[in-house]
Every structure is written in C-alpha cells, then in structure tokens.
C-alpha cells in the first residue's frame, strides 16, 4: 500500500476487536471483530464513501478515525504522519482537522446550549479568539450553512430537523477542518430536506476544498456524493473502486446483490433481483473462509475454507473474492 501520494488521510490494516466474553480467570475468550483489516485513502477535496449494512463496521471505522476508539491493530496516517505518534500539539491539531457530522440532529446537539455556544465551543477551546471574534465567526458560519446570525441565540428545539443538521455542519466547520466525517448525514431527515443538505455539503466542499468520509447505506446517496467507494461486509472492505466504475461494473457478488436490492427510481426499472438468503451473520461468529460465502449465490470450492485476497482486476478497482483470482 502506498501511503504518501498526497492523501489527506489513509488507514492501513485498521482493526478493532471488542472483547465480549471472559472466562472465569478473566481471560478473553471471544472477540467481536467490528473492523478487521480495513485500508483506504482519502484524497484532498474528495469524498470517500463507506457503504454496507448495519453491523458491517462502518461506524466503528469512523470512531477509530475520530480517536473515539483505540484501534486493536493497523495505522491511521494523517498527511503521511501516523496519528498514534502524535503528541499534545499535534494531537490537538489532528482533532481540530478531523470533524464529524452525525446522523441524528435531535440527539447530537445539547438541548440546553444555545446555538452560539454549540458552534462557539470548539473555537473557545481550540483558538485564542476573543469573545467578539468568536461571535462574528459564529455569525459567519451560520450564514454559510444557510441560517441567520440572529438564530445564534436560539436553542436546538426551536429548529427543524434540517436546520439542526445545518447547525451540526456549522459546528463541524468551525475549526476549518481538512476532513469531515459524515455519518449518515441525511437519513434522519425528511425527503424534501435531504437534497438541501446534500447540496449544502457539496457547496461547502467545493468552497473549502474539504475531504469527506461519507458513511451511508443508501446507494443512491452514495453515488450522488462520492468520488470513490468502499463496500464493507463484516468488518472488511470487500470491494473498492471509483464511484462510476463501481456502479457500472460491480464485481463482488455482495456488491451486486446490494445494488440489485436498491429500490428503483422509476416503476419501469426492473432489476434482476439477486435475493440473498439469510441475513448478515453476527460478527461474533464470522464464517470461515470468505465471510460472505454462506449467503453468496456464486460460491464455489475454496470459498468456505480459504480466505480470499485482494486483487485489482482493473486499475483502481479492487475486490476481495475468489472469483477474481488471487490465492
């Protein structure tokens, strides 16, 4: 894996195993492998999408990057520097440069804080701006996300869901981050509001040359927003490609099934439905060989015993599946 071709952030073999049960002697017997060897890179000004179903590890990956969880293995590199080696100032700079917008705008804003303080708090903690400067910066941020400066004095409950998500975006932008992690940023919003927020995020990205890591399960949203996409299944990226390539030419049987299961945008669109049997197995009890083999319509000999390795059938299009060679 190359690490230094100007990526804002890259993760290499990232792992997070949660201990779940202990024996009498306190020795861990079982691990939940939420993230199990994930690698990808996010280029400046680009949006990288992580898609997958619930429990695939996409949110844990985000938490690891936000340093809300400690990785079990692997590295996170920020501008080529390993994050694990950062000390006080460097760490502070990293935390300011990597911000997040969360899914639920009802839960992610403190109901007892005024908007002024919600957006201003990161500025007070991380910068030496005076009160007046913070005030005008908050006003500027509110305008940037399509709200009015006077709304700084209101509380979150005085806003609609879409407006709250705008406040969340303003808070994330307060410290001029390089990377913003968007964890299902529109899925809790009403349909007519989603487009507003997606357009806003795109405008802000263009203006500030932001990089995004978008975590989503809705494939149409991902196609609309992302430049490159990784498909996760049970803690691993099973396929990764530039967005257009992935949607036009999906290789992994899981990606194909996911795409065939996506709802059509017109009643005349009939997809060949690949209806998978069963559901995602528990990450506590991952199947041997390829994790996907119990549900895979294309499984053959090696799948239930040999783990597939990553191959690159065409440039930049990587897949982890026995159908495409490898060991």
């Amino acid at each position: 894996m190359s690490t230094s071709n100007g990526a804002v952030l890259s993760v290499e073999g990232l792992k997070k195993h949660f201990p779940v049960s202990r024996s009498l002697l306190g020795r861990t017997r079982q691990y939940l492998k939420a993230v199990d060897g994930v690698s990808f890179e996010i280029e400046p000004g680009m949006t990288y999408g992580l898609v997958g179903e619930s429990g695939c590890g996409k949110t844990t990956t985000a938490k690891l990057i936000l340093l809300l969880e400690e990785p079990t293995g692997g590295r996170i590199l920020f501008g080529g520097e390993p994050v694990s080696g950062l000390k006080s100032d460097g760490l502070r700079e990293y935390k300011a440069s990597v911000q997040a917008v969360f899914q639920d705008p009802w839960a992610s804003l403190n109901p007892r804080m005024r908007v002024r303080n919600i957006i201003g708090e990161p500025l007070e903690i991380n910068t030496s701006l005076t009160k007046g400067e913070v005030r005008s910066r908050v006003a500027g941020l509110l305008e940037e996300v399509g709200l009015a400066p006077y709304q700084a004095d209101l509380f979150p409950h005085e806003f609609s869901g879409g407006q709250r998500q705008r406040i969340g975006v303003a808070r994330a932008l307060a410290l001029n981050p390089k990377l913003v992690i968007l964890d299902e940023p529109v899925s809790a919003l009403d349909v007519s509001i989603r487009a507003q927020i997606m357009n806003l995020l795109k405008d802000l990205q263009a203006e500030h040359n932001l990089s995004y890591l978008l975590i989503a399960h809705h494939l149409a949203t991902v196609r609309h927003m992302c430049d490159r996409v990784g498909v996760m299944y049970l803690g691993r990226i099973v396929e990764e490609a530039d967005t257009e390539e992935l949607y036009e030419n999906p290789l992994h049987p899981y990606t194909r099934a996911l795409m065939s299961a996506a709802l059509p945008s017109h009643p005349d669109i009939q997809r060949d439905e690949i209806i998978l049997t069963g559901e995602v197995p528990s990450p506590l009890d991952t199947p041997p060989g390829c994790h996907f083999h119990p549900r895979c319509p294309a499984r053959f000999d090696p799948c239930d015993s040999v783990e597939p390795v990553k191959t690159e059938p065409s440039s930049g299009h990587r897949v982890v599946c026995h159908l495409y060679g490898g060991a």
């Binding site: 009403d190 997606m198 357009n199 196609r223 609309h224 709802l263």
Partner: peptide, 24 residues
Amino acid sequence: EALINSVPRMEERNDRLYSIPGQP
C-alpha cells in the same frame, strides 16, 4: 414533481439535486 426530482438516483449520477426550499 419537486419531491421526485429531489431524490438522488441509483441509476445515474446527477451533479446537483433539485431542492425544495423551506420545510413542511
């Protein structure tokens, strides 16, 4: 019309979505 146009499509990439101003 606005609602249908504001939904991103799986089948093609559209660079900008139609967005309905305001809220219900």
